[in-house]
Nucleic acid binder design. Structure first.
Length: 443
RNA sequence: GUGGAUGUAGCUCAGUUGGUUAGAGCGUCGGAUUGUGGUUCCGAAAGUCGGGGGUUCGAAUCCCCUCAUCCACCCCA
């Protein structure tokens, strides 16, 4: 016998997990469509050179890669943004700009697992390609916000930054070529504090303590978004790039306010320098106030040069990605997941084999009315059947034994209140039963 | 990839300084005079003690390796 097991970081999804998972995906689709994003899909496998060197050194290391049976070097996608760039470069003639798409699909990263961190996980991406307008930045923020609230979250914070600010500052300090290690050090700021971050910048990036000090003046900007925006001009000096970045953030905040986003859910955070290397402008990271340790559940940003690696045409883009599996792991920890184990609300008890046709007819009638129904497959004792129905979370049980069938009626039993009512029912006149079911399910 | 912790029935765990047929609760299944469930009572099934190797007369218990999970670093969704 072969031991049944799954690979590290890969998981099976049982019904009680899959039901809320599909619900969440449906919610995401609804939000995306509400903003005019269209669905697309791309292959799990790409030519290796499409994927390498696009995310970061880290994603190259984590890439699942192999040689296929035709001798081609291939890799499994580690995100949905890089395949999008390839997709857009390949099809932009048909797509036109601006092109808005959403994409729900699994991605793979061979990294070490942790809570809310897997090797195969579902991302829900949405992006707008072909415009640099701040409108698409604002819209990205609004979609993140709507996604979170539509999924049932009240307590979350969207951290926002703009890479132009750091880029501009580093240009002024003539440190542009060291932006990656500096970025990486800056990212540690919330964890290790100002002094250690400065020391790390000096040792890891090789800059002078004075330069580190100037970079870290960014981090001193704190408070409400408005307060941070007021402090930033003094810190960035005369860099045009950085000024443009600040102006961009100002317009972003203004747009969010105009659209009615609660400003308490937004935080301008100059220390989030993360994201993949391809980001060039605004950056978003979303944290759950009640479970910040699980990391960002929805992040993204603007990448104005990514498509250029596959095309002569310059196509700017902006978007974000919802980490569905991480989010569901968080919801489970926060006990926000309902434990529904059946997707159908109505249960039909099965009394004796001679009446099977009647039950099949009854089930078909209920389904035809658009109501999900499950017929128990064995004529077990009624008590056992009800116990099953109860444990699976059915809301209504239809009880029609020999007595009821003979008298052209059916018992409609509410499994929560344990109350039953008799409803007239015959195969030719199912309307009263359907009405009774609809009424019972609406309450 | 590095460091640390954990790994005993489906789940949560107990298992004394290594010593006979490894236990409990919950869950599951069956029953309590043959059609009404989440309570109670009775009963049953279920464990290669994560896997492999070693030390020993004897290992769930000690040692090594391996796999998995969790935590930290790193990075990210």
């Amino acid at each position: 016998m072969i031991t049944p097991r799954t690979l590290k970081g890969f998981r099976d999804y049982l019904p009680e997990v899959m039901i809320p998972r599909e619900q969440a995906m449906q919610t995401a689709r609804t939000v995306f469509r509400r903003y005019g994003f269209s669905p697309i899909d791309t292959p799990a496998l790409e030519h290796l050179d499409v994927l390498t060197g696009k995310g970061s050194e880290e994603t190259d290391r984590q890439l699942y890669r192999f040689v296929d049976n035709g001798g081609r070097d291939v890799g499994m996608r580690f995100d949905l943004t890089v395949p999008l760039a390839r997709f857009v470069a390949q099809h932009i003639g048909k797509l036109g700009t601006p092109f808005k798409r959403y994409h729900l699909a699994p991605v793979w990263r061979g990294e070490n697992t942790q809570a809310g961190r897997y090797r195969e996980f579902m991302q829900c991406d949405f992006d707008c390609v072909g415009t640099q307008s701040v409108v698409s930045d604002i819209e990205t923020l609004l979609v993140i916000h709507d996604l979170m609230t539509a999924l049932g979250f009240e307590r979350f914070t969207i951290h926002i930054n703009n890479r132009q600010i750091l880029t501009g500052l580093l240009e002024r300090l003539q440190l542009a070529q060291l932006s990656l290690p500096i970025l990486r050090s800056l990212d540690k700021l919330p964890k290790i504090g100002v002094e250690k971050t400065a020391a790390e910048m000096v040792s890891a990036a090789g800059i002078t303590p004075d330069q580190a000090d100037q970079v870290l003046r960014l981090a001193a900007c704190d408070g409400t978004p408005t307060e941070v925006l007021d402090q930033l001009p003094d810190v960035i000096g005369d860099s045009d790039t950085a000024r443009a970045g600040v102006q961009r953030l100002r317009e972003l905040m203004q747009g969010a306010a105009a659209a009615g986003v609660d400003p308490a859910r937004l935080k301008l955070d100059v220390s989030i320098a993360r994201g993949l290397d391809y980001y060039t402008g605004v950056i978003f990271e979303t944290f759950l106030d009640d479970l910040p340790k699980i990391g960002s559940v929805c992040s993204g940003g603007r990448y104005d040069n990514l498509v250029a690696t596959y095309s002569k045409q310059s196509l700017p883009g902006v978007g974000a990605s919802l980490g569905l599996d991480r989010l569901l792991a968080a919801m489970e920890q926060l006990k926000l997941l309902p434990t529904v184990r059946t997707p159908a609300p109505v249960f039909i008890a099965y009394f004796d084999r001679d009446s099977l046709d009647a039950y099949l007819r009854l089930a078909a009638t209920v389904r035809a009315a658009g109501i999900g129904v499950e017929l128990y497959p064995e004529p077990k004792k009624l008590g056992q059947q009800l116990k099953y129905a109860d444990s699976r979370g059915f809301r209504i049980a239809l009880i029609a034994g020999g007595n009821e069938l003979a008298e052209s009626r059916c018992q409609v039993k509410d499994l929560q209140s344990k109350t039953a009512t008799d409803v007239p029912y015959s195969p030719d006149q199912p309307e009263p039963l359907i009405e009774a079911l609809k009424e019972a399910l609406n309450t």
